[in-house]
Design a binder for these strands. Structure first.
Lengths: 217, 217
DNA sequence: CAAGTCAAACTTGTATACAAGATAAGGCTG
DNA sequence: CAGCCTTATCTTGTATACAAGTTTGACTTG
């Protein structure tokens, strides 16, 4: 992996995990000292981060880690909802036994994480793994990767919501039911379930009340 | 509009209209002479074109206009199909009279273009305008703009397919019927219609037979 | 003291010289 | 003559000096 890719990966992770908080300044000179590299390749990285909405660039002023944009979150949820409905409709008819086992395995590991009372980090990774597997098993890995490029706001939004532990069980249960309905080909109940699974928290005021500093005014 | 944005717009249009053919070389030095600007800002433009799949970058070798990737086209069609089904479901219940008139107006102008036997250029613009209007009227302009960023392959694919004049009438008729069903709230027929409207040509071999040079091997 | 102004110290934007890898042609050697 | 190796000349990648806009704060002036 090239140096630029490493820097990109590092910065993306720090932003997504909120180690770099919304509003934090990413100065080219500071970053060039931190990573011991000149401004030119750093600007390549910042340009990409800007295009993927990780940072906001104010010309001749500075680069700020973007604030979470709830409008963007709602739109992405609509997008994922529309896609996953189609994907699950497809999988209900085409999912092979091997795929079922794969999904079951992810759910088992996720359950273990919940019981061990571990950090939210591995839970989130397995949550992603579950949805990614759905896309991949339906031959839609391309679209999964595409969505990842527009995911900054949604990923941070979800991370903050999942700080509440009661959410985790709830999410796991829904995953479990999605898999059940899929294997039983009960397509009727699936659409509503997906809709609820993705959409549930968007209308709550949890973020506005607890993390107002991170939200785009 | 800044100089970089103008260059970007110019290059994007030349690629989308196939003035710059797939495989054409975009050398930094040649472009810097053409636009009378140094390589640094040009590299910013090329970086964005690369991220949006307009060009393929081969490090230390060169930048080529990307070949049309039919896999990408199929995936984007699936994406659009899933989105537009949801959008039209929504519009069937919420579309105001003003919106209906707007869509009708676009269709009228498109019909005029067909009758005047004009170039495919204005037809394509109105085709885009129709679909963009659907997104906008449903409050999904954000997603329309998002899709545009991943559209290089699809746009060029569609342009080549529409060189056949018989296609134009067919497309227009489908638009007309989509609008009719929507206003009459006949949601049952709409899903299949959208599906057909977007998906019809993907399995034909028209491109492979007539424009093999433009296709990614 | 208050307010306005000017200058210095920041920020990113641009141009350019140089580094380093890739390619292709020419010449050498068997 | 064939094959290989060397070298010249492409390409993009990086570092750096300079340009230009923005902000901040101190100083002057009323």
């Amino acid at each position: 992996m090239s140096i630029k890719e490493e820097i990109m990966k590092t910065l993306k992770q720090e932003i997504l995990t909120l180690t770099l908080k919304p509003g934090a300044i990413l100065s080219e000179t500071v970053l060039s000292e931190r990573f011991q590299i000149s401004r030119t390749p750093l600007r390549d990285v910042l340009k990409q981060l800007s295009l993927e909405a990780y940072i906001d660039v104010y010309p001749k002023k500075g680069n700020l880690v973007s604030y979470i944009d709830l409008e963007s979150v709602e739109q992405i949820i609509f997008l994922r909802s529309a896609l996953e409905k189609e994907i699950i409709k497809y999988l209900s008819e085409h999912l092979a036994l091997k795929g079922v086992h794969e999904l079951k395995d992810i759910l088992d590991r996720q359950k273990a994480v919940i019981l061990e009372d571990a950090a939210t980090e591995p839970f989130l990774n397995l949550d992603d793994a579950f949805h990614a597997a759905l896309f991949r098993l339906a031959g839609r890995e391309y679209l999964w990767n595409l969505i990842q490029q527009s995911n900054v706001h949604y990923v941070r939004y979800r991370r903050l919501h999942m700080l509440r532990k009661e959410k985790l069980e709830e999410i796991w249960d829904e995953h479990q039911r999605i898999l059940e309905y899929m294997t039983r080909r009960e397509t009727g109940k699936l659409e509503a379930l997906i809709h609820h699974h993705l959409r549930e928290d968007i209308n709550s005021l949890y973020l506005q009340e607890n993390f107002a500093d991170y939200i785009r005014g």
